[in-house]
Nucleic acid binder design. Structure first.
Lengths: 220, 220
DNA sequence: CGACTCCTTGACAGCGTTCAACAGTAGTGG
DNA sequence: CCACTACTGTTGAACGCTGTCAAGGAGTCG
């Protein structure tokens, strides 16, 4: 029996979408970030546009007292840091060791051809759609619904692997869902007790979804 | 003494931004919606792009059990319904009697020149920035902070009038902030008791901000 | 004038937070 | 490779912010 574990590895060889944005002949580089290191900070000049090759990135905003809201997780293939303004509106850092491609931002916005404009709009629009859905989740869903939504999102984006390996901690998930890490933990335990999912080994980050329909039902 | 009450009336004569998007010579029309009527529904084909002339629009998503999350309020001068996909992702309806300009969506996306692409990106980017900030509010702020943020946003967008006239109900505000109308009401009363604001007359929708610095302090 | 909507306020319940203890894991350095 | 330490995650107990339910007043509109 074939078991697919966190697909998307194949995308790692070519920066597909980034190339569409900046043009085939533009300069782009690779860079590797250690776990926990910052890629760029909120309000810094937006010099580069990034695409994840391997690993995972979180983008977030902070309140002055340290409260954090994660806006998105970026997985292999995802573009992030594409700002129309001249500064980044989020801080971005590596959740685990992460490799990215990067291209200078000017190479996107300087020569806005009809084609690249459409490509840029498409990328911006996708993040707009994601964040709009996230509004409904943050404002109007319970902690169990939020956790179920999160699992379904990860499941979908990892292309429904037999086993899901989460790169982020319970605290990251909590700050993404607007709840505390304890509440995430309790929701996960509830879902496990109800037979919706099971943990592999003792790590608690390797998850098998046993009942996707039931999970989907929790969301609506 | 001059008292400016909800400025922006001047913008009502020309659809400034819309014209930049669709071109000077494009066809656009005016339309008037009665209080509470729907402009377009979520998942409907995105046929038109709108700009508010007079009144106020709310855009929102619904859960199957009726829970509602308002994504934005659109005031005179604001563009809404500009979707890159082919369907609307929100429902939009008129909070009060509202006049809008509208232009066919194709007139924006069919002839994507370098100039109109930049204009479109600018509009999309503005709504992206707004919704990103709203994530932090919904996920990580208390009800008092949310209410203070709301008041400051309205104050800013109405250009800091001496007296602020809110077009939306407590329920609308609640669904915008991800809390209940009772909690909004209590927060407003608290702010009144603390001398941050006062109500004019008995209507509770006409508000004078007495202490903007204190209000701003509550948010950070 | 009557019915309806909107808003405030009070009482109480409950979901999620806070604080704490503990176990298991992973990272670090000898 | 092992020991040490920090990190991560779970679970319990108590608290408190916000939601729920209810009552009542004021404004609005036909």
């Amino acid at each position: 029996m074939l078991i697919r574990v966190n697909a998307n590895k194949s995308r790692a060889s070519v920066p597909t979408k980034l190339t569409a944005l900046v043009g085939e002949d533009s300069l782009w580089h690779q860079f590797k970030y250690k776990r926990g290191t910052e890629v760029f900070g909120e309000a810094e000049p937006a010099a580069y546009v990034y695409q994840v090759s391997e690993g995972a990135i979180r983008t977030y905003k902070l309140l002055s007292d340290g409260r954090r809201q994660i806006g998105a997780f970026h997985l292999p293939g995802d573009i992030f840091g594409l700002e129309n303004g001249d500064v980044y509106r989020f801080t971005a850092d590596a959740i685990i060791e992460t490799t990215v491609w990067l291209a200078r931002r000017e190479s996107v916005f300087s020569g806005l051809t009809e084609i690249s404009a459409a490509a840029t709009l498409k990328v911006v629009n996708k993040s707009l759609e994601h964040v709009e859905n996230h509004l409904l989740l943050l404002g109007r869903q319970t902690s169990l619904e939020k956790t179920a939504s999160f699992l379904l999102e990860m499941d979908r984006r990892l292309e429904q692997p037999a086993m899901m390996i989460l790169p982020m901690s319970r605290r990251d998930i909590a700050d993404y869902l607007g709840i505390t890490l304890e509440t995430v933990s309790r929701a996960m335990s509830t879902l496990r007790d109800e037979g919706v999912l099971s943990f592999v080994g003792q790590t608690q980050r390797e998850i098998i979804l046993l009942d996707r329909p039931k999970l989907a039902q929790l969301v609506r």
